[in-house]
Amino acid sequence: MTEPFIRLQGVRKVYRTRGQEFLAVSEVTFDVEAGELVTMVGPSGCGKSTLLKILAGLHPHDGGSVRIGNQANPFDPSRDIGMVFQQALLLKWRRILDNVMLPAEILGLPAKASRERARDLLAMVGLAGAEDKYPYELSGGMQQRTAIARALVHDPKLVLMDEPFGALDALTREKMNLELLRIWRESRKTILFVTHGIAEAVFLATRTVVLTAGPARMADHIRIELPYPRTLDMKTTAAFGDYSRRIYHLLGME
């Protein structure tokens, strides 16, 4: 049996502020295979964003172990992470193409090849022709597509998304979910996707990790056996309803 791409075992994080301890996340144990799209769902304060920051190497963890990469997919923590946040966080003074280029510039990748790649990625996220526009000329959904292209430009092995569609209206969000599934299929990236939307968590995922707050711990992780490509019709099926019910149950919200 080969090793999984990501293995988290008993991961725990405690924040200390002014002598007070605050449990941010605990008992997190799950594996992610290369190429999976794993969602993490839970209420505010369940530690899902903390978990992403631990995976991104931005925060140390206090207990358990975090291992990313295996023989087939060696992982370089300094260049194999792509990040997308709730806000697109584009640089207002840069054109769209130059915004996508940012990670490539930071890593010092060859400029010409990176520009080509940025162009291709913009086309993939449906923004061909917007390369020379400024962020303010784009809608919220288009800005978020730019942010996704930016997260892919340095060809990272792992993409971390922290409620990327949380600030979008409901219909745009559904559309972006379908887009993300297509982008995921085409780019074959491993994606970890944080959300507090249960339907979104089930709809996207190969597997969903359920986290609870107070105390912040992982309740369970569930393999979502719905076939791909996923369609919006699936949201009305009995199987989809069963998964959603199970998550509500785990979150204590029947």
Binding site: K53, L58, R79, I81, Q87, L89, L102, I106, L160
Partner: peptide, 11 residues
């Protein structure tokens, strides 16, 4: 968050 993005790339 933007700082995090740059730091995740060891900028």
């Amino acid at each position: 968050d933007l700082l995090d993005l740059v730091r995740s790339l060891r900028g």
